[in-house]
């Protein structure tokens, strides 16, 4: 085999090796870190989910939530960001267990999520996001929940 041909073949082989990595597969966090879903307190849950690395507070993750929620059974939250993130987790300290939801973000995705959560009482909702560079970003908001549906 002459040299030119050999190089061509090896490049093709290398490309074939790299290609399958881009295949996307679902991650079940309940299977990979079950302890995080059983943790009762926020710091514990964050430690189980993301490890002990320090958190960096950021304003690049836009997290909107009502300041006062009259109905604790359905509180709309939105998360938007331009950062290159790998996953976003939502924690709160009102319910029996603190992990609420964990988003896995596929490559090149638009980070713009809206969803609703339940809170039993006034609580601080913490967002922890892991960037593809491994940095942990965090932001939080306190939500007042008035029980009994009577606002104020």
């Amino acid at each position: 085999m002459d040299r030119r041909k050999f190089l061509g073949v090896s490049i093709a082989a290398a490309a074939a090796l790299i290609a399958p990595v881009t295949e996307l597969k679902a991650v079940d966090f309940r299977a990979t870190s079950p302890k995080a879903f059983a943790a009762e307190h926020v710091p514990e849950a964050i430690k189980e989910m993301f490890g002990t690395a320090g958190l960096k507070e950021t304003d690049k993750i836009k997290f909107t939530a009502p300041k006062l929620a009259e109905n604790g059974g359905s509180i709309p939250l939105t998360i938007q960001s331009d950062l290159d993130l790998e996953s976003i987790a939502i924690f709160q300290d009102a319910n029996p267990r603190s992990t609420t939801a964990v988003f896995t973000i596929p490559k090149d995705a638009i980070i713009d999520y809206e969803f609703r959560i339940k809170l039993r009482k006034t609580a601080v909702v913490t967002i922890v996001a892991k960037g593809r560079d491994g940095v942990l970003y965090t932001t939080f908001k306190e939500i007042d929940v008035s029980i009994g549906g009577c606002g104020g």
Binding site: N95, A101, P106, I117
Partner: peptide
Amino acid sequence: NVVFEVTTSGFMAE
């Protein structure tokens, strides 16, 4: 292709 993925718990709203 996976475009959205979330692991949820019982604390999402009904």
